[in-house]
Design a protein around this nucleic acid. Structure first.
Length: 221
DNA sequence: GCAAAGATTTGCT
DNA sequence: GCAAATCTTTGCC
């Protein structure tokens, strides 16, 4: 699937599982599992919204490699974002994981969100942040690309990891076959106004409209 | 070498 | 609804 055209691969990732093994920044060994509910496809050199538009660099190098590999980058100097590399090795493309819906390990995700917030704002009250996160529904713990990374302890050190290897601490797994496949709708991508036409208008964002974990304002979904 | 902008999130007005 | 926080990467001198 990931070796094929990126838009179809992105659509096909909706409903797949993102799995994180117990290892992480602290000793709590809870396994985290979540359903992918929102993604965006970023195409090759010609896509003015894609990091690949600069050609291969130190940052985006893995996009030019084989499919199924993690591409993690830092955005706005603050948040890590997880991508899955798509298409064959000579064609750069990646799928941004924008939101996932927790199925297991939600408390571990809450702890990771707290640790991430404390690292970002050392002067703020950890207790206030802990209470804020405790009040958050599980479906909102990873609603947004920066929050997916925070909830799963994903940072740039995981870039290059094989997400299709069952031995990887972070990996993709096929959805539960007994579960009905989700409805998938498309929209333009978010936060790429700089790309200009026609790229801003292309419907390369895919999501499950029934999921409460999808990011963005409800009326813009 | 330096200036500018960015695949975001949060808090305040 | 708008602006701040924060730092890497890119683009131009």
């Amino acid at each position: 699937l990931l070796a094929g055209p990126c838009p179809a691969a992105a659509r096909g990732l909706i409903g797949a599982l993102l799995v994180r093994d117990g290892e992480g920044r602290d000793a709590n060994g809870q396994r985290r599992v979540a359903r992918i509910v929102e993604v965006e496809a970023y195409l090759g050199i010609a896509d003015r919204a894609s990091h690949a538009r600069f050609g291969p660099t130190d940052r985006n190098g893995v996009m030019f490699g084989p499919p199924g590999i993690a591409y993690v980058y830092l955005v706005y100097g603050m948040y890590d974002c997880l991508n899955v590399v798509a298409e064959p090795a000579d064609r750069p493309a990646a799928i941004l994981i924008r939101a996932v819906e927790p199925l297991a390990g939600a408390e571990r995700m809450r702890a990771a969100r707290l640790a991430s917030a404390v690292r970002r704002r050392p002067t703020a009250s950890p207790e206030a942040e802990r209470e804020r996160l405790a009040a958050l529904p599980a479906a909102h713990l990873a609603r947004g690309p920066g929050l997916v990374a925070a909830a799963f302890d994903i940072d740039r050190s995981l870039s290059g990891l094989d997400l299709c290897d069952p031995a990887s601490p972070l990996r993709l797994e096929a959805p539960d076959p007994s579960r009905p496949s989700p409805r998938v709708v498309s929209s333009p991508r978010i936060g790429i106004d700089y790309a200009g036409a026609p790229w801003t208008g292309r419907r390369l964002r895919f999501f499950d409209p029934s999921s409460p974990a999808v990011s963005g304002r409800p009326w813009k979904r």
